[in-house]
């Protein structure tokens, strides 16, 4: 099979880490809409797709505990990538979709990937009622409730899950009212989250089904050019502390000092954006994963909030061996705050 052609397609869809920055996000945005500061996000419309933007995702992660006492992690992601800034029907549409689903246990990692064309009903997202789907994977809301009550399903070789999510707090808008700057040069995206789902449901593993409960976090982001050309990857953390507070933080790597950004979410759901440099990320330990060294233990510091924790992977081998590979998996938090969260690392 022609790896090169696949790679080319996916380079555009998402992959190809190097010259153009990770995931092709550093390309210019001719004809595509550009995120503008001050554009208010409106719901439920913005839960749906934005075909005039080049790239968009619905990104759900959940840290779970099974009736068997073991810790689990679940990922459900739908990416949209547009070849041209418009929608269309039939095979001719320029909208391409990619789904990633994963189920992580302390000693195993199951994943699958789906690709689809828009326009034929194989994949898409509608805002009212909320419904995001690709093949038989879906994230579905109840009419009139936006994304507050979701059912989440996916299956792949050797795994399946079926979960119910209930939001326990408000939506969180990152950056300046959802306008999230991604580099000192000003590249930005529209970015909001629902960080406070309670989750219950069933995981199916080769050894059988297990009932689980836990917490979920949904990220929504769309843009046409979110990365600067010299940025090669990112380390992204979503942390839920036992205190009820939460933090989203990421560091973008480049040849120089990089760029960091964080949002502190109080127990009441109120969000505070913290500027570049407020968050400090230090790799403590790397693991050999899929033939490369990936940091799987981090020191995360946010002095402004008295945060100084160690973040460790539940299973260091949660490599997403998809068309463009990356690391994504559940983490444990210990130190000034305890809790659980998710870590995503790209460009290694």
């Amino acid at each position: 099979m022609s790896v090169r052609l696949i790679a080319l397609i996916l380079c555009l869809l998402a992959g190809g880490a190097h010259a153009q920055g990770f995931a092709g996000l550093g390309t210019t945005a001719e004809g595509f809409a550009i995120p503008q500061r001050g554009t208010p996000l409106t719901f439920p419309q913005d839960h749906g797709a934005h075909p005039e933007y080049r790239i968009e995702w619905w990104y759900l992660t959940a840290t779970l505990t099974g009736a068997d006492g073991r810790d689990y992690g679940v990922q459900w992601t739908l990416f949209r990538s547009a070849l041209a800034p418009h929608d269309g029907s039939g095979w001719e549409t320029p909208q391409l979709w990619m789904g990633h689903a994963a189920l992580t246990t302390p000693d195993a990692h199951y994943l699958d990937e789906r690709l689809a064309r828009g326009g034929i009903g194989q994949a898409g997202v509608t805002a009212q009622p909320f419904h995001a789907f690709i093949d038989n994977w879906q994230m579905q809301g109840q009419p009139g409730t936006g994304i507050s009550d979701l059912t989440l399903r996916a299956s792949g070789p050797g795994f399946a899950y079926d979960l119910t999510l209930t939001a326990e707090g408000p939506l969180v808008l990152h950056g300046d009212q959802g306008y999230s700057v991604k580099s000192a040069a000003g590249q930005a995206s529209h970015y909001y989250s629902q960080p406070a789902y309670t989750v219950r449901g069933t995981l199916t593993l080769p050894e059988g089904a297990v009932a689980v409960t836990g917490q979920g976090w949904l990220d929504r982001e769309w843009s046409s050019q979110p990365l600067a050309g010299d940025q090669t990857g990112w380390d992204w953390f979503s942390l839920s502390f036992d205190s009820g507070a939460r933090m989203m933080g990421f560091g973008l790597r480049d040849g120089g000092p990089g760029y960091t950004s964080a949002t502190w979410i109080g127990t009441d759901g109120s969000a505070t954006a913290l500027p570049d440099g407020a968050l400090k990320l230090t790799p403590l330990e790397t693991s050999a994963v899929a033939g490369r060294d990936v940091p799987t233990r981090w020191r995360v510091e946010l002095p402004a909030r008295g945060l100084d924790v160690t973040v460790s992977a539940l299973n260091p081998q949660t490599w997403m061996a998809t068309s463009f590979p990356y690391w994504e998996g559940p983490v444990d938090i210990a130190g000034s705050h305890d809790g659980r969260g998710y870590l995503e690392m790209t460009g290694y």
Partner: peptide
């Protein structure tokens, strides 16, 4: 074929112009 799912897309001969997804999927 749907090049997103087709399991063995042909590889262009050496010297062919660059094949981008835009060229494959759009008019």
């Amino acid at each position: 074929v749907d090049f997103l799912s087709y399991p063995m897309p042909p590889e262009a001969d050496a010297g062919s112009p660059e094949i981008t997804p835009e060229r494959i999927f759009t008019a």
